[in-house]
Amino acid sequence: MSQHSATTLRPDLQLIADWIPARARVLDLGCGDGALLAHLQSHKQVVGYGVEIDVGNIARCVTAGVNAVQGDLEAGLADFHDGSFDHVILSQTIQAMQHTEEILLEMLRVGREAIVTFPNFGFWENRWQILQGHMPVSETIPYQWYDTPNIHWCMLGDFEALCAKNGIGVLERVVMNEGRRIRVLPNLRGSLAFYRVARRG
């Protein structure tokens, strides 16, 4: 149906897609050109909506046959009712947000589960660059310190502490580097973190 179904999904998006059950209601925050939702629609028959700040991407989502609403995540998710989604996805964006804690709470207001992914600042290459006297620049952090959109860096433990503080439980955690899953010393060896979280109780 969509033009994306024939192409392969970016590995990090594929991992997220694997976490979504068939026919789920999915909200993808910062959905870009709609690749993930198009994939989920054609492979898992999900009911999906995306939120995207860039109007050019709204047009790309239209072309991909994906529902997309132009909006700024910093303003919250007022367009969406409480508990109206099974899964709310925020992919590699939380570190660039002003209202980090608020968006996490908003995700779990409108959704039963939240999927949050972010570049792990604790990755050894980042630590090494800091030891050499520089802010890290890498594949997952491709910006210089003076022009980066990323303002809220965290490591695995930091994110988990934020969840705990808000009564949010971690259902599943995967840490990757270069498309491979990292099981040993993930906070040191993993460059990208994936969390599936939900409200406790």
């Binding site: 909506y49 709204i58 989502c61 239209v62 997309a68 609403v69 367009d79 009712h81 109206s84």
Partner: peptide, 11 residues
């Protein structure tokens, strides 16, 4: 959205 309709919105 609340009515489950397919929608695209541009501002």
């Amino acid at each position: 959205i609340a009515a489950d309709k397919r929608v695209a919105y541009g501002e």
